[in-house]
């Protein structure tokens, strides 16, 4: 059905191991410019810009109601945007045809379909829709469901069901894979195996992954780049380190003072603080620990700054305008 479609392996071999770097001069896999979304009077997205490059694992984070789902569904072609430009794999998702669909894989949270089907039967059936599908048996081995091949879908555990969803999402060798809260309800081992699988798809096969998650550890573990969507705008975007810098999140330095009391201090430049401590102590420091800011620190910091920032602006407006008038009124 797609004569121009080729498997992604050749690209994958050209990819360096480790975080993918955007290849200069190539068109991003996902490109959004100034995308807005309005439901009636309510504007949910106020101009979202995104660039996601081939082979990249990109995480979209944000509190509930920030517009994550809306953004992802616009990219998936399931929702019409109100304004802005979107290109996904070189096409506008609103006009994506079957060939375009065949290059995209989807793993959603809420699928409970095909309960009566057997695992291998379902995977083999969905392979039939694609021009160059993966081998269902190999795929079952890849997601660790070989033993469950003959089982009915409704008899799978939650984690097994999600892994089957992943297998169905990649059976057509997608170039772009959407993962929506993929590891909710996984035990730690299943989560780890899932992470290894996603990394393998991106690093070895050049699959581009767009991950939405509430699990910040997961985002930090997997994502090359992370975008934070707050209040319908991308507030920050970059590698976890870049985000920490953007958020001005500080590393935490802990040590034990001479009198035995534990001390902690946050520092933008922990190296300088440690050097100063050494200089003051003129020797080793008991219980020294430097913790770099986790993504959670960055995220919460950014979220608070966002809220405070907004309040701050209002406060300033208030002081200049309303409060002043009120003040005058009270004075009078």
């Amino acid at each position: 059905m797609t004569p121009g479609h080729t498997p992604a392996e050749p690209v994958a071999q050209a990819q360096p191991v480790g975080p993918a770097r955007p290849v200069v001069g190539t068109q991003p896999v996902v490109r959004a410019r100034d995308v807005t979304m309005t439901y009636g009077d309510l504007e949910v997205l106020h101009g979202v810009d995104l660039d996601i490059h081939r082979g990249e694992i990109f995480a979209l984070l944000g509190p509930n109601g920030a517009g994550k789902t809306t953004t992802v569904e616009i990219l998936e072609g399931f929702r019409r945007r109100s304004a802005g430009e979107v290109s996904v794999l070189g096409a506008d998702p609103e006009r994506g045809d079957d060939a375009w669909r065949g290059r995209i894989g989807l793993v959603l949270q809420s699928w409970r379909d095909h309960r009566r089907w057997r695992v291998a039967e379902l995977l083999t059936h969905f392979a039939a829709y694609y021009p160059d599908p993966r081998d269902p048996a190999e795929l079952l081995a890849l997601v660790g469901l070989t033993e469950q091949a003959g089982r009915q879908v409704e008899r799978l555990s939650g984690g097994q069901r999600r892994r089957l969803d992943v297998a169905l999402g990649i059976v057509g060798r997608p170039e772009l894979l959407f993962l929506d809260e993929p590891t909710t309800g996984f035990d730690p081992e299943a989560r780890h195996e899932f992470h290894v699988l996603v990394e393998r798809l991106a690093r070895e096969e050049g699959v581009t992954v767009l991950l939405t998650t509430h699990d910040l550890m997961e985002a930090e573990r997997l994502a090359d780049r992370i975008a934070m969507l707050v209040g319908g705008r991308i507030r920050a975007c970059g590698t976890p380190t870049e985000l920490a810098r953007q958020a001005a999140a500080r590393a935490e330095v802990r040590w034990t003072a001479d009198d035995g009391t534990p001390r902690r201090e946050r520092a933008a430049d922990p190296s300088r603080l440690v050097w100063e401590l050494h200089r003051d102590a003129n020797g080793p420091i008991a219980g020294l620990e430097v913790r770099r800011p986790t993504l959670e620190d960055t995220y919460l910091h950014m979220l608070h700054r966002e809220t405070d920032g907004t309040d701050g602006t209002h406060g300033t407006d208030g002081t200049d305008g309303t409060d002043g008038t009120d003040g005058t009124a009270r004075a009078a």
Binding site: F78, D98, L108, H114
Partner: peptide, 20 residues
């Protein structure tokens, strides 16, 4: 039922899924 379970959505996300 199949709309509610997500069968329709899965086929929508599959090339040629709705005609099939």
């Amino acid at each position: 039922t199949e709309r509610e379970e997500g069968t329709l959505l899965r086929l929508r996300a599959t090339p040629g899924g709705i005609p099939a």
